[in-house]
């Protein structure tokens, strides 16, 4: 019981904090932390990208735009960028097809507890260690790995199917890593489609492919687009998957940037490449947020 007691045994009025002060006090810890750990570092990195060389020791500080000319000065980077883009598009495309189909199967062919359990099973790997999951693929696709053992079970003299250290291996690992995102976003989008809409289409003579491409895909488009963004963005920044599954062929923008920070110690170049990539990411966001807003409006 509070010591001061007002009318009818109720607590008495106390002086209250002004509301803006309370709001600020609630927000300050989190946003101060985010500023220190994310916003200031990004700013610092932006500044670094205009330096001539990493300011180690007592080298003079020279400002330059040369780092942003890297694609012009080092043409091999264009090839690397193309590889990264191709990996990103393949991964996103495969995830979109498989993820949409899986979500559709979940929504239309399962119900109740079964559906809930299956959804959790699909999403569960996503929240486990990505590194470990990438590592686990090496057990399967290396020469003499599980895949080969499995095939030779039926056909003892089969040649090795192992494809570790190839670009498809990288895509495979990335699809494995990001597929659950697409299943989740498509699942949410498909769940909100009223059964009556589908029945209406069928009553008007639509066959299953018409229902799929004229009703389900357009209505679930926000889910597909969200999923595609959530996958494409981290995938083009991936460096651990290409290193482990790609070996020597696994040179991507991600690994090149990583190298600048951990091997070459060319932080300005690494920063400039990272910001170029960030610009691409923001452009992707900007392009598709328009699409999303439009589809949300209708």
């Amino acid at each position: 019981m509070p010591p001061e007691v007002g009318a009818a045994g109720l607590p008495a009025t106390r002086r209250r904090m002004p509301p803006w002060l309370a709001t600020a006090a609630l927000l300050l810890p989190s946003y101060a932390w985010l500023t220190l750990a994310v916003l200031l570092p990004l700013t610092a990195m932006f500044v670094f990208s205009f330096l001539h060389a990493t300011p180690l020791g007592n080298k003079p500080v020279v400002w330059t735009l040369e780092q942003y000319r890297a694609f012009h000065d080092q043409p091999y980077l264009l090839g690397v960028a193309w590889t990264s883009l191709a990996i990103g598009l393949w991964t996103t495309g495969i995830c979109a097809v498989v993820g949409f189909a899986a979500a559709l199967a979940l929504v239309r062919a399962t119900a109740g507890r079964t559906r809930e359990t299956l959804l959790i099973l699909v999403l569960l790997p996503f929240w486990t260690n990505g590194l470990v999951r990438v590592f686990s693929w090496t057990m399967v696709i290396r020469e003499g790995g599980f895949l080969d053992v499995f095939v030779r079970w039926f056909w003892p003299s089969a040649p090795s199917l192992g494809f570790l250290y190839t670009t498809p291996a990288i895509v495979l690992g990335l699809v494995h890593g990001y597929l659950p995102y697409m299943v989740l976003t498509c699942y949410i989008a498909l769940l909100s489609i009223d059964d009556a809409v589908i029945e209406a289409a069928q009553s008007l003579g639509a066959r299953w492919w018409t229902v799929l491409f004229k009703i389900l895909v357009p209505l679930a488009a926000p889910g597909l687009v969200t999923g595609a963004i959530l996958i494409f963005v981290p995938v083009i920044g991936a460096f651990m998957e290409p290193r482990i599954l790609g070996g020597r062929v696994g040179v991507t923008m991600g690994t090149v940037i990583e190298d600048q920070f951990t091997q070459a110690f060319n932080w300005p170049l690494g920063s400039a490449l990272a910001f170029t990539m960030l610009a691409v990411v923001l452009a992707v966001f900007a392009t598709f947020s328009g699409v999303l807003r439009r589809s949300a409006a209708t």
Binding site: M45, A238, E258, S271, L278
Partner: peptide
């Protein structure tokens, strides 16, 4: 933002 960028920053 890709973790690669946040991490290096």
């Amino acid at each position: 933002i890709p973790w690669l960028i946040t991490g290096t920053a």
